[in-house]
Amino acid sequence: MSRYLLKRILMMVLTLWIIVTLTFSLMHMIPGDPFASESDQLPEQILLNLRAKYNLDEPLPMQYLLYLKSLVMLDLGPSIKSETRGVNDMIKDGFGASALIGLQAIAVALFFGLLFGTIAALNRNTWIDYTAMVMAVLGIAVPSFIMAPLLINYLAIKWPLFPVATLTSWKHSVLPSLALAFGPLAIITRYMRTSMIDVMNQNYIRTAEAKGIPTFLIVIKHGIRNAILPIVTFMGPLIAGLLTGTFVVEKIFAVPGIGKYFVDGIFNRDYPVILGTTVFYSAILVLIIFLIDLAYMFIDPRIKLSSRGR
């Protein structure tokens, strides 16, 4: 097992390196330049100096090595567009807000998704099931950029329960979290229903019923544990995505998170920001996918991921 763990950790570093390398190449292959908007206004010499400041005058392989060198020391470099703040500061300042909203959204989506999905599966083809299904369809068909203004209109303006814009108290985080939670909630409900129906038809559930165990306990002890696997799989990219913020919801609710850097960095061709946000997101993603592979074995001991070890 320890050998497997060690191997996976090395693999994670390797994966991150490949992502950085590919992003670096892609980023320099696309047309555009960080100083494209200033190039007509500034004199030639200033532009050259600016390029020199950010090592952009070096040949690409050199720039790449310089970046890797600072990355190893966990320095994500300066932001070209913001003169005072480096990429590390941007992430440090914004990650808390993004992560708070993301975590709350995940908690809401997971709890209610599992609950609704299980209830729908146990009451299959009744009005309860159909209600859950219609909700799931709406949750997907109404994207967050429509859900967010609707939430603001009804829960903040017409019926002022929660404040909107910025993030100065916990109350401010409720609406953005809800707006983010609807989509995943619907998806989790749907997966849980399907997978629970499948599990409840298995022989071991019949055995448990024959032993006289109450339905509630069967669902808790045998049903959920066997049915939750697709949701665990789905949670990986979801957690990584929500923790690192979302562009649309943070924009609508004016949350000071890091979601905007992922998009702005690319539009501004702010190379260190593109690489920094990618590394940060990928590191979280790779780590969570690793934890999820471990969780597979914990949830279902029948699962064996490596031939050696265990």
């Binding site: 992502i19 980023m27 990584a240 690319i266 946000t277 990928s282 993603l285």
Partner: peptide, 11 residues
């Protein structure tokens, strides 16, 4: 994982 990690916009 690499495909997940690459910035979609860049692609």
């Amino acid at each position: 994982e690499v495909l997940y990690g690459l910035p979609y916009l860049l692609v």
